[in-house]
Amino acid sequence: DLSALRVEEVQNVINAMQKILECPICLELIKEPVSTKCDHIFCKFCMLKLLNQKKGPSQCPLCKNDITKRSLQESTRFSQLVEELLKIICAFQLDTGLEYANSYNFAKKENNSPEHLKDEVSIIQSMGYRNRAKRLLQSEPENPSLQETSLSVQLSNLGTVRTLRTKQRIQPQRTSVYIELGSDSSEDTVNKATYCSVGDQELLQITPQGTRDEISLDSAKKAACEFSETDVTNTEHHQPSNNDLNTTEKRAAERHPEKYQGSSVSNLHVEPCGTNTHASSLQHENSSLLLTKDRMNVEKAEF
């Protein structure tokens, strides 16, 4: 173990290094160091905050020279020094078990990766560091076993998940096959086929009936047209017969005018059967003409 005197000496050296690497504005270890034209180094955030307070150039807090945003430059070497100082402080805390008085939040800088452990060898070769390295080497064999167990647990979990997924996939297939086998029997399929065939026959029977009705309507229309044509021909046949009657009536009127007047009046009210309204109107006109002729003949006879 380190003596108290040596611990104090190391602590004083760390404090001196820390004062050199402090920012003059925030009085902390410089984060993202930036250098000016006057070779003074500050935190990048502190300098941008200072420049944004005034429009135009501002003055350096140490030498009062003008500073602009374009004049600022990043210093990589200074950032490396800060990183190495942080590593020294971490090693000091691990070796002594004491917390550094002016320690900052170094938890963000710590890294437990194997590459980081290899890099620590180049920091300080001390008894405390050696003991700590031995402890780490002793704890390393235990870690692979834990990793193997965790991997086995994960693989077993994956296997159970896969088996569950396969079961879920197989179950719908089985149910679907069961439904297909038990849903419709052979008799049901035959009945469905016969039902479809009967429906098709009914459709075939319905369509000819409609065509037959249309044919019957067409035949009825044709018969009505033929009947009207026969009526017209009958009226045409009746007209010459009426003319013959008129000639006979004229002759009778010349011989017996008194008797014919009474008979002509009675004939006005008689309509021949089986004739249309057109034929009756023609008869009325003929009878009126005959009456006028008879009157003329009677007057001539009187004179």
Results as ranks from 00 to 15, higher is better:
residue 95 D to Y: 15
residue 115 E to K: 04
residue 63 C to S: 13
residue 229 E to D: 02
residue 239 Q to C: 04
residue 270 V to G: 09
residue 216 S to Y: 00
residue 164 L to N: 14
residue 25 I to K: 05
residue 69 K to D: 02
residue 262 G to L: 03
residue 67 I to N: 11
residue 137 L to I: 05
residue 96 T to W: 00
residue 108 K to Y: 06
residue 4 A to Q: 07
residue 150 S to H: 01
residue 33 P to T: 12
residue 44 K to L: 04
residue 25 I to Y: 11
residue 5 L to N: 04
residue 139 S to K: 06
residue 76 T to K: 06
residue 149 T to F: 12
residue 63 C to P: 15
residue 287 S to R: 15
residue 233 T to S: 09
residue 130 R to E: 07
residue 150 S to V: 01
residue 243 N to V: 08
residue 55 K to H: 05
residue 56 G to R: 07
residue 252 A to F: 03
residue 288 S to D: 06
residue 234 N to F: 02
residue 88 I to C: 15
residue 37 K to Q: 02
residue 44 K to Y: 07
residue 157 N to Q: 10
residue 20 I to P: 07
residue 218 D to R: 01
residue 158 L to Q: 14
residue 63 C to R: 15
residue 203 L to Q: 10
residue 123 I to H: 14
residue 277 T to L: 05
residue 82 V to E: 11
residue 53 Q to C: 07
residue 281 S to P: 07
residue 10 V to G: 13
residue 185 S to L: 02
residue 19 K to W: 09
residue 92 F to S: 13
residue 60 C to Y: 15
residue 271 E to Y: 03
residue 69 K to F: 00
residue 115 E to D: 13
residue 49 K to C: 03
residue 273 C to T: 11
residue 163 T to V: 00
residue 80 Q to D: 00
residue 42 F to L: 06
residue 22 E to Q: 03
residue 18 Q to Y: 10
residue 169 R to W: 03
residue 16 A to Q: 12
residue 206 I to N: 07
residue 150 S to R: 10
residue 21 L to I: 06
residue 280 S to N: 10
residue 27 L to A: 06
residue 99 E to S: 05
residue 31 K to I: 12
residue 280 S to V: 08
residue 125 Q to K: 08
residue 275 T to C: 04
residue 88 I to L: 01
residue 201 Q to H: 10
residue 80 Q to S: 05
residue 243 N to Q: 14
residue 29 L to R: 06
residue 38 C to M: 15
residue 201 Q to V: 07
residue 83 E to F: 14
residue 8 E to L: 05
residue 88 I to W: 13
residue 157 N to E: 07
residue 31 K to E: 13
residue 150 S to F: 02
residue 217 L to A: 02
residue 16 A to T: 08
residue 106 F to K: 09
residue 192 K to D: 07
residue 52 N to R: 13
residue 298 V to L: 03
residue 222 K to N: 02
residue 145 S to P: 06
residue 157 N to C: 01
residue 16 A to N: 08
residue 197 S to F: 04
residue 54 K to W: 03
residue 203 L to K: 08
residue 271 E to H: 13
residue 207 T to E: 15
residue 262 G to T: 05
residue 164 L to Q: 12
residue 8 E to W: 01
residue 82 V to K: 14
residue 209 Q to K: 13
residue 251 R to D: 10
residue 231 D to Q: 02
residue 219 S to M: 00
residue 29 L to N: 02
residue 36 T to H: 04
residue 259 K to V: 08
residue 70 R to G: 09
residue 243 N to L: 14
residue 244 D to S: 01
residue 49 K to A: 03
residue 298 V to F: 00
residue 146 L to N: 11
residue 59 Q to K: 09
residue 285 E to D: 06
residue 204 L to K: 11
residue 299 E to H: 00
residue 222 K to S: 04
